[in-house]
């Protein structure tokens, strides 16, 4: 049974097509990367999977259950954890409380169990030392880690990572890669949007390429990056734009 299935998912904002007949599936424990130029509809795709925005048509199944009309909170409780490209920390709560909320609501843990789950997520992401710091005082790297810790504390089967490496230095990216590979090795499926292709290639075994809301390639990373179609839309985005005008 695939963990996640998208069948002909489409979405428009006015005249702007952000998703057109997107179909793919993701197996349990798989690690899949998503690339594509800016405005390709990558984050919107995450929004539809996680429930922040509703698709116009098509079906989204999580563990064979149609989730297309469920709220983000319900999908989270079913096992979808997501991070945001621009971190959304609960600024006036401590780092620990950020993870604790996710453990108590997303994973529905109680009492000491919720404390342990939250703290384990902080340890996993290297934030344990900062547990009592207000989240608002964190810098970018730690905010990105906190996004991941919070997603992790919900006890996910699927982790949706949205440009988690964006804006970080190379050594910082390397630290994140180690963490993400550890999660993948523990059997958590990872769907990862990233512009830092180097980071993706070290971790994923499959790559999807989106352009103008369409899925233009899907396969092993080396094949996808080598394909003519992807080179055209992703690496030569300017030419396409000029052609369109």
């Amino acid at each position: 049974m695939p963990l996640l299935q998208l069948e002909g998912v489409s979405k428009k904002f006015g005249q702007v097509v952000v998703a057109e007949e997107i179909t793919f599936q993701l197996d349990q424990g798989a690690a899949v990367g998503i690339v594509g130029p800016n405005g390709a509809g990558k984050t919107s795709l995450f929004g539809m999977i996680s429930g922040d925005i509703r698709q116009d048509s098509g079906r989204i199944l999580f563990e064979d259950q149609s989730v297309g009309s469920m709220t983000a909170a319900v999908r989270c409780r079913m096992g979808m954890g997501r991070t945001y490209q621009v971190p959304h920390p609960f600024e006036r709560m401590t780092v620990f409380e950020n993870a604790l909320l996710a453990a108590q609501q997303g994973a529905q843990a109680h009492g000491q169990k919720s404390y342990d789950l939250a703290f384990a997520a902080l340890e996993r992401t290297g934030l344990a030392e900062l547990a009592n710091r207000p989240a608002g005082s964190l810098g970018l790297l730690h905010r990105k880690r906190l996004e991941m810790a919070r997603a992790l504390a919900t006890g996910p089967k699927l982790l949706l990572l949205d440009e988690i490496a964006g804006g970080l230095t190379d050594p910082e990216v390397n630290e994140l890669i180690v963490i993400i590979r550890g999660l993948r090795d523990d059997g958590i499926a990872v769907l990862w949007i990233e512009h830092v292709v180097r980071a993706l290639l070290s971790t994923v075994d499959r790559l999807l390429c989106l352009a103008s809301g369409r899925l233009v390639a899907d396969g092993p990373p080396s094949e996808v990056l080598a394909s003519e179609e992807v080179r055209k839309v992703y690496l030569g985005g300017k030419i396409i734009n000029e052609a369109a005008i």
Partner: peptide
Amino acid sequence: LVLASLRDNEVAARSAGVR
């Protein structure tokens, strides 16, 4: 904790499982 999360960031609260 739920109320504090709503106060700080509603979008993040939703995706952390808050109804």
